[in-house]
Design a binder for these strands. Structure first.
Lengths: 179, 179
DNA sequence: ACCTGAACACCGTTCAAGT
DNA sequence: ACCTGAACACCGTTCAAGT
């Protein structure tokens, strides 16, 4: 990649972070290009689809969570809860991004696929441990957890539900980990 | 309302039902007007906002569910589960409509407000009964149930999660009603 | 009273023309 | 190689003109 191209690519991602944080997953791509001081075609060259932009944007975040979970050395149920909370927070950081994250988990074509699988796997391992200890219910797997994460994030995204979102987080996590 | 106006109003709703069923809550309003054989301004006259159209569309459905729940004469936990399932199904009937339904519950300006409150109340009463019998967990209320309904419907709406949606329905309802 | 559709300001996407 | 922005086909929304 040429130096100026790489520069544009980076700048687009930086700007996209802000714009998507403000306007959510359906933010205006034109707006991103404009604020990045870049032609509209340049954005499309680097990110041929909106999903491609979101995937590139989220990949860093997802990898960060995976790394954080990997170095955690606490009791297994605490590690699982922290993983769960971190995932919800990421899903909620950019409004409406849960669909992209859950789709990437299954879609091996996605630029986000490997990152999501890694994050999924580490959560699944924590869940396994908790299940083996009898701390977690045994009728769910890592992908179910991922779905519950995204569903909770959706609740956080709804203005009318946001006030109860923390409570519903507790309800669902206590269903996963009955004390 | 003049006769021709009433006719247009009705036709718009009928067409909207089909279009929203196919394309979800963000369907093209232009498309609705076009298929109804009506000027775009006419649509806007009757439904000044997309939300207004969705609210009118959903009201009938919501009232139906309330009526159905009211005449049910089964054991309380079964009635609660049926209410829960019916609500999820309605939320999923038109993709992306959960936001409208949950917003209407809190927004007294909404044309859907009274209908949603009625549906909420009947569910809340069923939950109360189940809680009194010790069948349902006691740290949630009717509005929490409504939020869980919408979150589940969101899961049903995601192509990658749809295969596990029924299972997650069981997980959440068994968390509400531990057997 | 009610309806219509042109007009406006946006959008996503493509692609010929430039460097 | 890469970038640009005009061009196209859409969209939501408004509103003057019609009946």
């Amino acid at each position: 990649m040429r130096a100026d191209a790489r520069e544009n690519y980076e700048r687009l991602l930086v700007v996209a972070r802000d714009v998507v944080a403000e306007h959510g997953a359906d933010a205006s791509l034109r707006d991103v290009a404009r604020k990045a001081g870049v032609g509209l075609g340049t954005l499309y060259r680097h990110f041929p689809t909106r999903e491609a932009l979101l995937e590139a944007l989220l990949r860093t975040h997802v990898d960060e969570l995976t790394a954080r979970a990997a170095e955690r050395e606490v009791s297994s149920t605490d590690a699982l809860l922290t993983w769960f909370r971190d995932c919800v927070t990421l899903n909620h950081e950019y409004r409406g991004v849960g669909a992209t994250l859950t789709a990437a988990l299954e879609d091996s074509e996605s630029a986000l696929h490997n990152s999501c699988v890694a994050l999924h796997d580490i959560g699944a391992r924590l869940l396994d441990r908790a299940q083996a200890e009898g701390a977690a219910r045994t009728d769910i797997d890592g992908t179910d957890l991922f779905a519950l994460v995204a569903a909770l994030a959706w609740i956080y995204d709804q203005p009318s539900l946001a006030p109860r979102a923390d409570h519903l987080f507790d309800v669902i996590s206590s269903a996963v980990l009955p004390s």
